[in-house]
Nucleic acid binder design. Structure first.
Length: 227
DNA sequence: GTCCAGGGCCTAC
DNA sequence: GTAGGCCATGGA
């Protein structure tokens, strides 16, 4: 049993349990980017309200969003929380898109993924998870998105430490799985789905992570053989 | 009333 | 380089 096989097995079990998650719900690449900022530490249901509010005051384009006065922008996205920070972050993102790509995310297509990642990380308010979410879900780059659910699940599975850093956890996936945008997309979404539904608490029997009544996907013995 | 959401920045050590 | 505080709203 290799790590690659184990990661594939976890993915298949999650997919079988929950089905395709169909992320990211948005009408355009730019809307995905906006959602990636708005969903920072925020439930998606709140983000939907904020995006609806945003669509009431402007078109979903960088130029149109920048034409909205800051105060109006803040009020429009208020339901998603941290509205002052996020309004500023959205403006920062839009100015970047206008300056570097003529306001058109499609113009980013020929740019290497690592270059884009660095550019995004240079933006104030865009950290590793937001940058990678944009790369994967808006720009179809095969980048694995790590979040708190991922660290929690994988540390309980013994695949990383509880205090593992972002790049460390990301490497667990990307060093072992072939780059596959569709799979990375679905995998991350499934981990979030699983985390929300079942992984808030440790399994009372094994102290790790439960999937229904099945302890860690019946993979504990396989995983322990890796070590 | 408390906890937490599809994080990241800033400051102090 | 990292632990802790802060940002804000809404639903469970």
């Amino acid at each position: 049993m290799t790590l690659t096989h184990t990661l594939q097995q976890i993915f298949e079990n999650l997919l079988k349990e929950y089905g395709s998650q169909s992320w990211w719900p948005a009408d355009s690449a730019f809307e995905v980017m906006v959602g990636a900022i708005l969903t920072q530490n925020t439930a998606w249901s709140s983000v939907e309200k904020a995006i609806a509010g945003l669509k009431d005051v402007c078109e979903m384009t960088p130029g149109s969003l920048l034409s909205v006065p800051l105060e109006d922008l803040e009020q429009a996205i208020r339901p998603s929380g941290y509205f002052r920070q996020k309004a500023e972050r959205l403006q920062t993102l839009c100015r970047f898109l206008n300056r570097e790509y003529g306001g058109d995310p499609g113009s980013m297509e020929p740019v290497p993924t690592l270059t884009l990642r660095r550019q995004l990380l240079d933006l104030k308010g865009v950290g590793p998870e937001t940058a990678d979410s944009i790369l994967l879900y808006a720009l179809d780059r095969a980048v694995f998105v790590v979040d708190a659910y991922t660290v929690r699940l994988f540390s309980r599975l013994g695949l990383c430490g509880e205090d593992a850093g972002y790049r460390e956890v990301q490497a667990v996936f990307m060093d072992s799985l072939a780059p596959d945008t569709g799979m990375f997309n679905e995998y991350h979404a499934l981990i979030v789905r699983h985390g929300k539904e079942r992984c808030r608490k440790r399994d009372p029997v094994c102290g790790r992570c439960a999937l229904g009544g099945m302890c860690v996907f019946n993979l504990r013995s396989q995983i322990s053989n890796l070590r």
